[in-house]
Write a protein that binds this DNA or RNA. Structure first.
Lengths: 303, 303
DNA sequence: GACATTTATGTAATTTTATTACCAAACAGG
DNA sequence: CCTGTTTGGTAATAAAATTACATAAATGTC
């Protein structure tokens, strides 16, 4: 009773389904258009109030959607689940990250407690999204470049400057000298001095900042490898050797904090850790030592 | 809402259960000792391979635990679930955040892809943990102080310095001038200049850094309110007006990246957003405007 | 240390829920 | 306007969850 290529399959193609990764709600949203009319009714009530369905039985769901029970079952298989049971498990997992962002928009009347809940939820949901949209190939290329680098320079402004500085602090993991430039004049100077074997790591959420693109260009002209970390497939991405695009759920609500920097920080964690793991075993002790030094430095920095 | 006690209740007291927040696995770990002998068998196989149980029926679970089916049911109610169904839903949600941290420790042999998965998972799990362990009362007091502040100064070293800088960048939300001091000499100078009405926001993950405690002391002597953001109930916490303790799952594995700064950043998000929401309605437009300015600044910073 | 009382666990019956088999309407193409 | 195909419903069936009840183990009391 696999439903892959059998006759029961509707127009909803497998690749569409996979695109959403593990989040069943996303899968439903995407396949919705390709579903049968009645299945769509089920899809709609699930999307409308997933929490309700989580506690519902097949019968209740059928009533809510105004369809028959088997239709609910067919809906479940149509979106790629093994059965209703499996569907509910998957729904529960999708909902664990908090009700989808659209539901958790902050209201002016929210109590601080609610605000905390929502912001945490939103952050976690966004991280989940970022993870499922990571470009693994680009990631691998970036790790390759970083592992071979002689020095690494991080560039960024504003919120991205924070990320750059954080990355720079991870130099013990990267194992080579790292710099972080936040002043645009300094940036130009440093970029001009880079040469083959160096890696310029350019961070810009928007990917449109003029001066940051200039940095990328200069570093590249001098023979340095250029990696960028950006929020969308921007102009900056096209002029780099590797573009790490970290998509985040953006939300125009003024209260919604910028999530992009959190996702970027986690990506940096992944890169630095992977690079550290790439090093030969005989270096491990040395890295361990460095890490401890960093740890000590954080713990107690005497005047 | 979910875990009210029924008559079947065993010695496992309600407060114990609530301590774990929403994560059923944690709840099981904590209540395990207080469970009946047979129930404990069930608890053990759940903890041992939660993924397996997620796909199992009552019967299968009973066989795996070598108990009868009703025992499995009783186990479910004992840990505060409405029934086996409810238990599975909750288990699914707990597992969605990634297999518990202990399972996702990085191995030297992991592929970069796996590393990414694990780090994202770990970050999300930790955030979930941090959320459920937030001290709401302290949070409220901090928001009160920040909302009334005339100026805010953030202090931090190393990784915490990153957090301080990030917080400072949120000044449009706080609505008052904010500073971030990262150099210890500067810190002493600025702290000495603070006076009543000012807020010193001291960030230190360990909470034991000598110089940072000195800062807190100086600022306090001068009449400034002192808020600290720290990772545990440390010496620093006891000498501040408000102590925000953000517990994170710590893990001694060398590859595990420091999660504390991520949690701290999210807490700052919560604080700044709450403060912004606290402002009178007539200020909202002004804040909105400031926020846009900040946004523009991020987008494009001409040389 | 036997007896009463509570607590813990299993067996079997029962109910609820999920799934399947089958049939009828709607629909598209010839 | 037939004919095969797709879609959706009804009713039967299988599977799973839950309850009722009985028995065994443990605990305490005199």
């Amino acid at each position: 009773m696999r439903r892959e290529a059998t006759g029961t399959e509707t127009g909803a193609s497998a690749d569409l389904r996979n695109a959403g990764g593990r989040n069943i709600i996303e899968i439903i949203r995407m396949t919705r258009a390709a579903l049968r009319k009645s299945d769509r009714k089920v899809a709609d009530i699930v999307l409308h109030d997933p929490q309700r369905i989580l506690k519902a039985t097949v019968g209740e769901t059928a009533t809510l959607a105004q369809v028959s029970q088997p239709t609910v079952l067919r809906f479940a298989t149509a979106i790629g689940c093994k059965g209703f049971r499996d569907f509910k498990i998957r729904l529960a997992q999708s909902l664990a990250l908090g009700t989808p962002a659209t539901h958790s928009v902050l209201l002016g009347t929210d109590e601080p407690e609610t605000v905390a809940e929502k912001i945490f939820d939103y952050t976690m949901t966004s991280l989940d999204w970022a993870r499922s949209h990571l470009d693994k190939a680009a990631m691998l290329k970036a790790i390759d470049l970083l592992a071979k680098a002689r020095t690494i320079e991080f560039f960024g402004f504003g919120a991205s400057g924070i990320v750059a500085r954080d990355a720079q602090q991870k130099f013990p993991l990267f194992g080579v000298p790292c710099g972080a430039q936040l002043d645009s004049h300094q940036q130009i100077m440093v970029a001009s001095m880079m040469k083959e074997g160096d890696v310029a790591f350019v961070i810009s959420n928007t990917g449109t900042t003029r001066s940051i693109m200039e940095i990328a260009r200069i570093a590249r002209e001098n023979g340095a490898a250029v990696i960028c970390l950006t929020g969308s497939d921007s102009p900056l991405a096209s002029c780099c050797d590797v573009a790490l695009i970290v998509e985040t759920l953006e939300n125009t609500n003024m209260y919604t904090p910028t999530i992009s920097r959190i996702a970027a920080l986690v990506v940096i964690d992944v890169l630095s850790t992977s690079v550290a793991m790439r090093r030969p075993v005989e270096d491990q002790a040395r890295i361990h030592n460095m890490k401890r030094q960093l740890s000590d430095m954080r713990k107690d920095q005497p005047t």
